[in-house]
Simulated assay, not measured.
Amino acid sequence: MSYQNLISEVKENILYVTINREKALNALNAATLAELADVVEFAAKTDEVRGVIITGAGEKAFVAGADIKEFSDYSGKQGEELARKGQEQVFNAIENSPKPFLAAINGFALGGGLELAMACHMRVAAEHAKLGLPEVTLGLIPGYGGTQRLTQLVGKGKAIEMITTASMISSVDAEKVGLVNYVVPQEGLISKAEEILNVIKQRAPLAVAAAIKSVIASINDEDGYGVEIEEFGKCFETKDFKEGVSAFVEKRKAIFAGE
């Protein structure tokens, strides 16, 4: 896969995606969002990919926000369409992907950058990273799911505080409130992300996908319990279930084929 604004590579069943606009602090312009939509679709449909790590180029920024210049003169209708298209094609597509997405936050994750990280299923942050949603300083609100996902992750009170004050928080404080899973030194960021996905890679792929679907159903106004029951039943029809049970009985390591 060849992109202008992303670097993407599959190694040992992990898709590495780097937003490569370091001089622009990896800001999300329309072209970058289109490429992200493409790579998210590729991950979902490619059996070789068992997990995805998204990070930013350099050590200063994961993604420092959206490219404000592109939409500074938008009308209300254009703004609404911008948010809808971005949410459907990128942010919701990541959250609803059957493959686990992990954000490796290597610096500033602001505005659309934090929204991108929150759309991922897990987040690991470098010690120096700063996170925030500063949109109200521009007379806007978060438009790529930020008001919803931040509330889900940290609770209503903290979410309203962060959004209405536009204040950044440190990665250490982000871990305390549940916004990130782990905080590690910069040099250990990708290896920590790999460590998590390498464990997941040992598990049954279809079961992992079913688990993600069930968890996400709980926050998307669906019948989460109903989805869980349905997905639980489907697992019994997979070869991986038979392999997992056989391996357990035979006291050996299971070898899952994703079937």
Rank of each mutant, 00 (worst) to 15 (best):
L6H: 01
L6I: 06
V10K: 08
E12A: 15
L15F: 06
Y16D: 10
R21D: 07
A24T: 12
L25M: 11
N29Y: 10
A34P: 06
L36E: 02
A37H: 03
V39T: 07
V40K: 00
F42H: 14
F42D: 00
A44D: 14
D47E: 13
E48G: 02
V52E: 00
G56V: 02
A64T: 03
G65D: 01
D67W: 12
D67L: 10
K69W: 09
D73P: 03
E81F: 12
Q89P: 09
F91K: 02
F91Q: 03
E95L: 15
S97D: 10
S97F: 03
K99H: 08
N106D: 09
A119Q: 02
L140D: 05
G145P: 00
G146I: 05
L153Y: 08
G155K: 07
G155Q: 05
M162H: 01
I163M: 05
I163L: 06
T165D: 09
M168Q: 10
N181C: 06
N181K: 10
V183K: 00
V183C: 04
V184P: 00
P185C: 13
E187C: 04
E194W: 01
E195R: 13
I200M: 09
A211P: 05
I216P: 01
I219N: 15
V227K: 09
E228M: 15
K234R: 14
K234S: 08
C235R: 09
K242R: 10
G244E: 03
V245Y: 08
V245P: 05
S246D: 13
A247N: 09
V249Y: 15
A257E: 15
